[in-house]
């Protein structure tokens, strides 16, 4: 965690925005592997038995295990050294929950973006569908695709900004060098995030995995600057 977060809420008071940021602060305090006083760091030191894990931690671990099974181990929160790192799922999970806070306050027009993952609802201030630009991995101040998720969640996995932070759990020492960015559109941002992480670890086959999954669409960019959309992705490109 510790990433920039952007929130836009249609016609609401500042205190709801404050609640959303407070929620993300709480998630960071609990799940950040960079914070020695977080719950996840304490768990990885062996300081907390499973029976004392928080409800939120168990929720995330349960979804991580389900994703591991559904992706044949390509999504796996176990690091090679045995530590648990649920970051590949916490981002989408937290954004999904923050979106629910907003909806329960009766705000229908909003977006929440954290670390490049997005959940939006309703329309922007001009009354049009929210537009999402996919960053050019080779030229990060350029957009290479514009999509209109219309309530769906968007997540992008990539290696270009942080280097090789995603690895293939089935071959941890092989770098994933043939693809650089995979954007997934799913029914919500948690679905998009968990499958974007897993599919990226599959290399080029990841876009086929997304094509095969009925409620996901994707856009893969490879190291040769070629992009491959899934067959239903184009529907999101229309405004």
């Amino acid at each position: 965690m510790g990433m920039p977060i952007t929130v836009e809420l249609g016609g609401s008071a500042d205190d709801l925005v404050g609640k959303v940021f407070d929620y993300f602060d709480g998630v960071d305090r609990r799940f950040s592997t960079y914070r020695p006083d977080s719950e996840i760091s304490a768990i990885n030191r062996g300081d907390i038995p499973v029976r004392d894990w928080s409800g939120q931690m168990i929720d995330v671990m349960r979804i991580a295990e389900q994703t591991r099974r559904e992706t044949d181990g390509y999504f796996d929160i176990h690091r090679p050294d045995g530590a648990l790192d649920p970051s590949g799922i916490v981002k989408g999970w937290a954004i999904r929950n923050a979106a629910e806070i907003v909806r329960r306050a009766d705000i229908g027009d909003f977006f929440i973006e954290a670390g490049g993952d997005i959940q939006s609802g309703g329309r922007n201030a001009s009354g049009r569908d929210w537009s999402v630009g996919i960053r050019n991995p080779f030229h990060t101040d350029e957009i290479v695709k514009v999509v209109h998720p219309r309530g769906h969640g968007v997540a992008t996995s990539g290696t270009y900004a942080r280097g090789q932070h995603i690895y293939n759990p089935r071959a941890p020492h092989d770098p994933i060098s043939d693809i650089v960015s995979l954007t997934v559109i799913g029914s919500d941002v948690l679905e998009a995030d968990r499958f974007a992480t897993a599919a990226f670890a599959m290399g080029r086959d990841g876009i086929l995995f997304i094509e095969q999954m009925p409620e996901l669409e994707g856009y893969l960019i490879d190291s040769n600057r070629r992009a491959t959309p899934t067959s239903g992705f184009g529907a999101f490109c229309q405004s």
Partner: peptide, 17 residues
């Protein structure tokens, strides 16, 4: 397809950070 620069006039940007 080849990637190419599009209009940057978008509400939100998705990409690695």
């Amino acid at each position: 397809e080849a990637i190419s620069a599009q209009s940057a006039d978008v509400d939100i940007i998705s990409g690695a950070t």
